[in-house]
Design a binder for these strands. Sequence first.
DNA 1: GTCTATAGTTGGATAGAC
DNA 2: GTCTATCCAACTATAGAC
Lengths: 211, 211
Amino acid sequence: MATAITPLRGRDAADTKDRLLDAAERLFAERGFSGTTMRAVTQAAGVSVSAANYHFGSKDALLAATIGRVVVPVNQARFERLAALEQAAGDGPLDLEEVLDAFLRPAIEKRGEAFRQVAARLFSDPPEVVVALKKEHFGDVSDRFVPALARALPGSDPSRVALDFQLLVGLMVHVISGQLDTNPYSGPYRVPEGEDLIRSTVRYAAAGFRS
Amino acid sequence: MATAITPLRGRDAADTKDRLLDAAERLFAERGFSGTTMRAVTQAAGVSVSAANYHFGSKDALLAATIGRVVVPVNQARFERLAALEQAAGDGPLDLEEVLDAFLRPAIEKRGEAFRQVAARLFSDPPEVVVALKKEHFGDVSDRFVPALARALPGSDPSRVALDFQLLVGLMVHVISGQLDTNPYSGPYRVPEGEDLIRSTVRYAAAGFRS
DNA sequence: GTCTATAGTTGGATAGAC
DNA sequence: GTCTATCCAACTATAGAC
């Protein structure tokens, strides 16, 4: 099938890039990296394959740009919230729930399924594809939040805090990837949303850290 | 490149199927479903593509068989352990840590990275591929364990228990998929293994359920 | 900056010999 | 039951017109 794309020559470059990133975000989220083709992305964006390669150079680079656009503002919000907590605490201890909230809220709160799921792909797609991206986008987060959590748990074993942080990441990934909706359970169960979901996750994680 | 497979005509069928399942298990675990090709699987197994299609019919069916071989015995062990706990408890309440152990141990304890990671793919690969498999293999597990957990938490809100079970699944997936190893954190941190890992996960989850 | 057209590769699946 | 050879579709990426 010849796709017959409207040949809008004068289309704005920034607009085309955004359209591609929007489509890539949705499709990578739904189907993963290997399961998504450049054709599917460009068709969803209403542009040609060549336009995508002109703007991003390769499928790998498109993934990196897509992940970056999703993750960077989330991490910025995390750092800002944590910095505010540290400033307010002065020399005293940090509040555990507040630190967990600073970590979880920016990720869970984002509107749009795709926006959250594509970030979760960072932890579920094949290693060779995402290992560099994970290091780039998540290394600083770990290095900032693990010590902060230790400071919120006076007298705790640093190695235990590091492990519990890894388990916290497991909770976060599961929640933001929308798995709460899809696990089969036939009993009565309503998936919480928004503020409820954030509070439930903070509650669960905080108890784990204090155990 | 012509693969030049040794043409062992008299090779045993069961052996070939096992070799294919072994290879598929490892590759699906490492690369996911879309990221794994039939050629890669058959080459790793030392058989031809046709042999795989003869035995399984399609790539989809190979995935279903691979997942089934991994997950069924794990779930059997879960059910046996839970049944034993219920029998021992009689009419009294169940012990939360023991129920969580019955759920987590069979999955975490399995030897072999691939064996565990391929099960985790059930929760991370694209929905259209695994949704039916997830329902088939995980529906009964949820329906058995959610009530058991509620019984271990007298007076609890059933809907809260169902949510906390979903979070437990998030912990399990993260642990068995080996993500504890790969998240970047530059501080001191040793990944626990075996019994330590099971106990740490049970501890963390139990606290969440009790919170 | 965006398109059409196509190169070059690799994918899943099958036909048919043995 | 297993192979070789092959079909055809779909893939990423690029060349070149506009």
